[in-house]
Design a protein around this nucleic acid. Structure first.
Length: 121
DNA sequence: GGTATGACGGACA
DNA sequence: ATGTCCGCCATAC
């Protein structure tokens, strides 16, 4: 059909795991593309994660704004989601730099520590 | 089935 | 720190 979405799997494949992981990122916390790819079992598949986000974030209501680059910077360009993502992060009390940079040491999501407050430097 | 694109990441000058 | 290059994976045509 004229579906431009990667509905190649319903949740068992890479895309499904990526979606599930992104949905697992709690409020006020962020994750990186590489981190999601690694947890999904595809280290180095950051680009695949990016594509899945781009294609399915809206359809599946994914918290896309909680995904940032490996250096904690917002990857979206100014005027095309940058300010939107920064605004959404701000609403979650996630501090962002003027350049859209997040302090990963403070806000990165740690699956092993979910449900407990994270150490802050 | 090869080519091109993309919200990446790491190495290197 | 900055810019460039290459490799990685998934999808579109």
């Amino acid at each position: 059909m004229g579906n431009d979405l990667p509905a190649t799997d319903g949740g068992g494949g890479f895309a499904g795991r990526v979606r599930s992981l992104i949905l697992s990122v709690p409020f006020g916390r962020v994750a990186t593309y590489g981190q999601i790819a690694l947890l999904a079992g595809r280290p180095g598949g950051a680009r695949g994660v990016a594509w899945i986000l781009h294609s399915s974030s809206r359809k599946y209501g994914l918290p896309w704004h909680r995904i940032v680059s490996g250096r904690g910077t917002i990857s979206l360009p100014r005027g095309s989601g940058f300010e939107k993502q920064r605004d959404l992060l701000m609403r979650e009390r996630v501090e962002t730099d003027e350049a859209g940079r997040v302090d990963l040491d403070r806000y990165i999501w740690k699956p092993a520590e979910r449900g407990r407050h994270q150490e802050r430097g």
